[in-house]
Design a protein around this nucleic acid. Structure first.
Lengths: 195, 195
DNA sequence: GTCTATAGATGGATAGAC
DNA sequence: GTCTATCCATCTATAGAC
């Protein structure tokens, strides 16, 4: 991995973010050293500080980019329709997106407690905004009597938790295809909410 | 918190485990130092090593005791009956137990990656045994046509994830009583599985 | 843009006094 | 059983050479 001295800003920056993401996902933020990240990239630890002011900011920016991407992707995907259709779109989107960003999702959930108070507040706000997208769908279906929900907020949190669980066991090339998994989760979700 | 020198084995041992549990739950295993744990207990770091050979073993024993307690408690609770009754008992037990052991549950889930390979295998085995209890209920209901499940294994994992989610938001004295939360989750579970 | 070198802090764990 | 003292490894971050 060693690299000769010289200018590589265009590749080193992204390489650092990718290496940090993978290592944080595997071992956890607190257990990963700047030296480890640098070694994975093929530079020395000091060089990392050309791209991030400190380790905390590196973590925070990874999490913020993930949450902003997630929100923007959903906003580009969602469409009008009846609540059941909108809910199906959300379930399929959520699973699909999470399959492709397992490290991002894992880090953004597990490392919340390693953020400074200020950074935590910002990430939590983005997380809440995403939950609110699901909650709005459930509330619309509840009001229209398409859904029968014991409690809209609790159902929101229960669904998010259930869907997030996929990434703890899904592996490419496993017993079930992605499409099959999406169908299974949509089946369970529909039965859970339908009037 | 300072304490005079002398014999306090009966209280220091449990105090160390409690302090470690709380600190690991709040900040994560890797981010907590032995000095912090000792300070919380009111002793110096060196004294901890009278009670644990090292930090890793301290974590491992906390997790193993939790998983063994969880399994033993469920085995003492479960009873015969039709699958729907057994499933309701499981859902209520799981939520109740997790309300009372939030730190234990949190640590046992979040710190898996900080276990040595050998310790991880043991904890994972206990975790799997607990999941199998739920899976057996679902399989029985599926075979008896009481339940209609798209996939027994996936439903098991989805239910566990959904139920575990409770501890990420539940706080004593919040909007909902424990009993109300149990009813809500049982309502969602029943609708999700019933034929 | 990256390196070498290092400051300065903190970590896990042990030795020996009391 | 606990403390003081300490070893030695490792950490984040910076300074200055190339």
């Amino acid at each position: 991995m060693a690299r000769k001295a010289g200018s590589h800003a265009e590749i080193t920056g992204p390489a650092i973010r990718l290496a940090a993401l993978r290592l944080f996902a595997r071992s956890g933020y607190a257990a990963v050293s700047m030296r480890e990240i640098a070694s994975e990239v093929g530079v020395r630890a000091g060089a990392l500080y050309l791209y991030t002011p400190d380790k905390q900011t590196l973590l925070f920016q990874l999490m913020r980019e993930h949450m902003e991407d997630l929100l923007a992707s959903w906003e580009a995907t969602r469409s009008d329709g009846d609540p059941l259709e909108r809910l199906e779109a959300f379930v399929r989107f959520h699973i699909d997106y999470h399959f492709d960003r397992q490290d991002e999702v894992f880090v953004s959930y597990m490392e919340l407690r390693n953020l400074t108070e200020e950074n935590f507040a910002e990430i939590q706000g983005l997380r809440r905004a995403y939950e609110d997208e699901l909650e709005a769908i459930l509330a619309a279906g509840h009001d229209a009597d398409d859904f029968r929900l014991p409690d809209v907020r609790v159902t929101t949190l229960a669904l998010i938790a259930m869907l997030n669980g996929v990434i703890t066991w899904y592996r490419d090339g496993g017993r079930l295809t992605r499409d099959r998994i999406q169908r299974i989760y949509w089946n369970m979700t529909r039965r859970m909410v339908k009037a």
